[in-house]
Amino acid sequence: MRDFRDAKTMAQTLREALGAKSIPLTHSDSLELIAKLFGQRDWNTLAARIQAAGGSADVPASAQQSPPGAVRQEIAVATAVLDRYAGFYQLSEQAVLGVMREDHHLAVQLTGQRAVAFFAESQTEFFAREVDAQISFVIAADGQATSLILHQNGDKPMPRIDAASAKQIADRTAERVKNQSPASGTEAALRRLIEGVASGQPDYVDMTPALAAATREQLPHLQPFLADLGAIESTRFLGVGAQGEDVYSVRHANGASHWRIALDATGTISTAWVSAGP
């Protein structure tokens, strides 16, 4: 069965099928519809996921254009300012965002992903050109960044941590990836999450604030998607992903879904991704 990495092929199939019925649909519109099917905000967001998974997801020119009034302009920022932002910021118990200066911009790399260039649009606000993501730095009185907020599929605040703590997280995640064993509690948490979202009443207390905010935003798309799949019949652990998240295939009464889920130290769901397919 297909999953989100086949989105471009699915968009083309949809366009051809509708064309055969004399229903016109542009290439960019078909991509946007498929992105919504997978619970993503837009094609740019889904394309970033595909690229992170090692797939190809070229964004058509029409999809790359920002809406009127939203065009982002790069400004010059002193390298001394960029150097103060360089460091490590914790996304979760399994993942760290590394920030480095490269010439006159920042290179940002999340655990398990490749680095992405971010460009300044103010002294504290940065944007990426190749993915739909922005970063805001929170600055202390001495000019040092104490945390940042990643604006992508919701707002994700990340406190700054030292290099030793970042290494501990990286080592722990690498060990989990090596062992490929599920973390305690993820299967039960996944079942609760699916049932809650499908009913339209997810337990936001069971999620971190950032995940709860993202779930609220995407609930209008997620709820009908999971409700149509029907009741859970079985779950199957597939392995541990590059960011230390547990990967599951869920069989429903009317189909299947593919999940990535992680819990924080308190057992709260900190990460949850879903796509169609086993």
Rank of each mutant, 00 (worst) to 15 (best):
D132C: 04
D142V: 02
F126P: 00
K178D: 14
V108R: 02
A164V: 14
K178H: 11
P157W: 04
K167S: 08
I135L: 12
A166Q: 11
L110Q: 11
E175A: 15
A174F: 06
A107H: 04
L148E: 09
A164G: 00
A163K: 12
V108W: 00
I135F: 03
V177N: 08
R114Y: 01
D162Q: 14
V108H: 05
A115M: 13
I161A: 06
V108P: 05
Q113E: 09
F119V: 06
H151G: 05
Q180W: 12
F127A: 07
R114K: 12
A145F: 12
K156P: 00
A117T: 02
Q152T: 03
D155P: 00
F119K: 05
A170N: 10
Q123S: 14
L110S: 08
N153F: 11
S136Y: 03
D162W: 08
L148Q: 07
D142N: 13
G143N: 13
A107G: 07
V138Y: 00
D142H: 03
V116W: 05
D155T: 03
L106W: 06
H151M: 02
I169S: 08
T146C: 04
I139C: 09
N179W: 05
N153V: 07
S136F: 05
A141F: 13
L106Y: 10
A174Q: 09
G143T: 04
Q134K: 11
Q123Y: 02
A170W: 09
A170M: 08
I139R: 07
A133P: 02
A166N: 11
A141C: 08
K178C: 04
A133C: 11
G143K: 10
D142R: 06
A133L: 03
R160P: 12
Q144H: 07
M158K: 01
E130D: 14
V108C: 14
D132H: 03
E130L: 02
V131K: 07
Q152L: 09
A174L: 04
M158E: 08
Q134I: 01
S165F: 06
F137M: 10
Q180I: 13
F118E: 01
Q134C: 06
E121Q: 13
A145N: 08
S136V: 08
M158H: 00
T111D: 04
Q134P: 00
G143V: 14
R114W: 01
E121A: 06
Q144M: 14
Q144G: 02
E121R: 15
L150T: 10
A107W: 00
V131L: 07
R172I: 06
I169E: 04
K167P: 00
T111K: 07
D162L: 09
F126D: 05
D162C: 14
A163E: 15
R129G: 12
I161V: 15
F127E: 02
I169H: 03
T173N: 11
M158I: 05
F126L: 00
L150D: 06
F118H: 02
R160V: 09
E121V: 00
Q180H: 11
K178W: 11
K178V: 02
V131G: 08
F127T: 05
G154L: 01
G143D: 15
L150R: 12
S122P: 05
E175D: 15
K156F: 05
E175G: 10
A140D: 15
R176S: 13
A166K: 08
S122R: 02
R176L: 15
D155I: 06
K167E: 14
S147A: 15
K156T: 12
I169L: 07
A145P: 04
A174S: 14
T173V: 09
E175P: 00
Q123V: 12
H151K: 10
Q152C: 01
G154D: 05
A140W: 03
